[in-house]
């Protein structure tokens, strides 16, 4: 059984690139362009890892993190932010984020992090 990964970002090219890289490694990847659509999908399907952008219109990454941790505690969340400023980092860590990446994202590091998330 292959692991299911969800990628959320409001820029299509970002989720496309992430999907391309992760699918190449054999993951099953679904992408969403908003926090709203991502949370709706989570109601139907269980994902092992959620990779989400921090800053989005409407439901943002922080809210996605909170909802996931509340309702699907086994799912790991990896957050991507434009800038890892201290406040957002602390906030995310409090919300039990698994990992935290600033932009521009190094895809190799992201993959390594996902692997670690799945080991646990």
């Amino acid at each position: 059984m292959s692991n299911k990964i969800m990628v959320v970002d409001d820029e299509k090219i970002v989720v496309d690139m992430a999907k391309m890289a992760l699918e190449h490694d054999g993951y099953v990847v679904e992408t969403f362009l908003s926090g709203e659509s991502a949370l709706a999908r989570l109601k139907e399907e269980t994902f092992d890892v959620v990779v989400t952008d921090f800053k989005m219109k409407g439901i943002d990454g922080m809210e996605v993190l909170r909802t996931v941790k509340e309702q699907y505690p086994k799912t790991k969340v990896i957050m991507i932010t434009a800038f890892a400023n201290l406040d957002t980092a602390i906030e995310a860590l409090r919300g039990d984020v698994f990992d935290f990446f600033p932009k521009p994202v190094k895809i190799k590091e992201l993959k390594a992090s996902i692997e670690r998330a799945l080991e646990k």
């Binding site: 690139m17 992430a18 190449h24 434009a82 932009k103 521009p104």
Partner: peptide, 22 residues
């Protein structure tokens, strides 16, 4: 400016990484 530039930069970076890799 950093915020405005970091997103396109990220896009370019991801595209390039994938292109090189795949």
């Amino acid at each position: 400016v950093a915020h405005e530039l970091i997103n396109p930069l990220n896009n370019i970076s991801m595209i390039t990484q994938n292109s090189l890799e795949l």
